[in-house]
């Protein structure tokens, strides 16, 4: 059982940069939590503070209730996998994995048994004598993972471990790592800036922005109920329409929709699959700018009279042509004001 508890943690770099800003996060036993956010949002900095490679400017980090903030990396029960895998090129695969156990002065037969077991686990059986440069990128990343796992850390930390791999390999390793993580029940904090990766792997996702938590939620909740326009725009594709509400109706250029909130400016959010289009009799609300056929579905790019672009997902491309006038009907939508959710239509729940 290992629980990671981060309380009020901050990190300043010099005077100007506040990389992590008074952040709270709890990762439960055996849980995999993804840190997701744009470049520079403080994901790596947070992870490195947990691993002991950056000293926080303030706050506390406990693992199973024990404060670790004053411990150097070598005395923390954490294992880190780096994006650049950082294998020791002067040692072969076996020695890379065995190094940590040797430092702990385990008996030779135990080292051999544990290294062999973990190599089997990550699919590297028989690769022990290889030099690190004789491995593919995916295999190198497996060695890096094995190097951490063999020490049975309480918390596993991964900083964009698949970022340098090609799409196909990334998807495969993603599944494997998730399998291993669940089999071992190891508490894991995973940094990524790919939303696919976060949505497919995580128990919960933490969306970071400028060093602050924007939202913490399970992947499906995050997709269906983004708490802020930033999350709405960051996860999946979302049409964000700035407009105004008066007398219970939202409007922007040719587009309007009933919206039972008080008068004033509002950000109207609707996913492409929830924005239904129909051929218009007259001028319509929007014009079709482009139709892109993806086979399973098609994406219709729309243009409002004031130039704002929207996307709608339709089952088939062939009913639609560029320049055609259409009417818009949002089936499910939500609305934000002052960076907070103020309305969600029934269907969006």
């Amino acid at each position: 059982m290992a629980v990671l508890d981060i309380k009020g943690i901050s990190k300043h770099f010099g005077a100007g940069v506040l990389a992590v800003d008074n952040l709270e996060l709890t990762v439960g036993d055996g849980e995999l939590v993804c840190l997701l956010g744009p470049s520079g949002s403080g994901k790596s900095t947070l992870l490195r503070m947990v691993g002991g490679f950056e000293t926080p400017s303030g706050g506390s980090i406990t693992i199973d209730g024990e404060e670790v903030i004053h411990l150097p990396p070598e005395r923390r029960p954490t294992g880190m996998v780096f994006q650049s895998h950082a294998l020791w090129t002067h040692m072969n695969v076996y020695k890379n994995i065995a190094f940590g156990l040797k430092l702990r002065r385990r008996p030779a037969d135990e080292i051999k048994r544990r290294v062999d077991a973990v190599m089997e686990l990550v699919g590297l059986a028989g690769y022990g004598e290889r030099q690190t440069h004789q491995l593919s990128g995916g295999q190198q990343q497996r060695v890096a993972l094995a190097r951490s796992l063999v020490l049975e850390p309480k918390i596993l930390l991964l900083d964009e471990p698949f970022a340098s791999l090609d799409q196909h390999l990334r998807e495969r390793l993603r599944e494997e790592v998730r399998d291993i993580q669940q089999r071992l029940g190891i508490t894991t904090l995973f940094v990524t800036h790919g939303q696919d990766e976060a949505l497919s792997m995580a128990d919960r996702i933490v969306v970071l922005r400028d060093g602050k938590v924007e939202q913490v939620a399970a992947p499906d909740v995050l997709y269906r109920e983004p708490a802020t326009p930033f999350v709405a725009g960051f996860i999946g594709t979302m049409n964000l329409i700035e407009g105004t509400v008066s007398n219970g109706t939202f409007s922007r250029a040719g587009f309007s929709s009933p919206l039972p909130v008080g008068d004033g400016p509002v950000t109207f959010a609707v996913r492409p699959e929830a924005l239904v289009i129909a051929p218009a009799a007259g001028a319509g609300a929007a014009k079709i700018h482009r139709v892109t056929d993806y086979g399973t579905h098609a994406i219709v790019d729309l243009e409002l009279p004031d130039g704002l672009r929207l996307k709608s997902m339709v089952p088939e491309a062939r009913h639609w042509t560029t320049g055609q006038a259409v009417d818009l009907a949002p089936r499910a939508f939500s609305a934000y004001r002052d960076n907070a959710l103020i309305y969600r239509s029934n269907a969006a729940r």
Partner: peptide, 18 residues
């Protein structure tokens, strides 16, 4: 020398001297 390599060694339990 790649600093990440050194950090990885710290991570598995090596002292700075080691």
């Amino acid at each position: 020398v790649d600093r990440r390599m050194e950090e990885a060694a710290r991570d598995v339990g090596a002292s700075p001297l080691r």
